[in-house]
Design a protein around this nucleic acid. Structure first.
Lengths: 144, 144
DNA sequence: CTACGTGCAAAAAGTTTGCAATCGC
DNA sequence: GCGATTGCAAACTTTTTGCACGTAG
């Protein structure tokens, strides 16, 4: 049976409040505001538990360690967008649909994963705005 | 300047011959047939080198360590299919196209990644074929 | 009170790096 | 011969696990 501990509550709250998928480290940092003694192992254990119980969903982008988002905001089929400048991940609630036809003959498609990459609405596009070298740009993972 | 060593040649050949993306371990195993003394560190170093020189491309599926494929077979825009039973990855040379419209307003889409999941043409579909427990099923990564 | 949960530290797993020996050119 | 390359082992990084203590119910 699952108990309600300060740690578990803090971790859960942080993810519910984020509005976008958070990395393990982001969860730890944010939850330590509430529970400063919180350890990394506890975060890993609870993330796994919360995923299994269906309270949160793991978001795995290609070549990146997993992020976690509340299923409250993500119960429906959706995809993700990662800003190549600030590295943050956003939900995309649209879907091209009907992708089964892309598979080779004899292959059955049960599921798909789509990730868009580009520039979010808050970052200066590196393509459009050609700045002099050494110009300030948002740190990876900044914002918030 | 890059030298032509037995190790590098073996690694390169294995990837060119595979016809599908191979994991680091698969590359090591296959290349050790030619060069039994080949070490894992050498594989890592050469994969990085070959990626940088554009000879091979890294394929990163969500939540999985990278695989590598020859750019000879993969110079064009394409996607990937992973069989959920045997875990092997195949190329999908089709693309839904026009995904920019899915992004939120103000977001610019430069690139996208699509992964299909399902059952390949050689694995019995776990959905269709309900077998008795303990029945033989292809090992993950088997075949070849 | 008892079992589940936590924190810490050690252990795994996967990847990178330092270094002396080796080999291509 | 010289410098790039290799193999091994040690160092790192990230995630998991063991264990004694703490705490919810």
């Amino acid at each position: 049976m699952e108990r309600s501990t300060r740690q578990r509550t803090a971790i859960s709250s942080v993810i519910d409040a984020a509005g976008r998928p958070l990395s393990t480290q982001e969860v730890l940092d944010a939850a330590q505001v509430d529970v400063p003694t919180l350890g990394l192992a506890t975060v890993y254990r609870n993330l796994k538990l919360l995923v299994d119980s269906g309270d949160i969903a793991a978001v795995t982008l290609p070549g990146d360690s997993p992020r976690y988002e509340s299923t409250l905001h993500a119960h429906e089929h959706h995809h993700h967008f990662q800003c190549t400048t600030c590295k943050r991940v956003f939900d995309v609630h649209d879907c091209p649909g009907d992708l089964a036809r892309l598979a080779p003959k004899g292959f059955t498609v049960e599921r798909h994963d789509l990730t868009l990459y580009g520039c979010c609405d808050e970052c200066p596009s590196p393509r459009k705005v050609l700045r002099p070298a050494g110009d300030a740009r948002p740190e990876p993972g900044a914002r918030d």
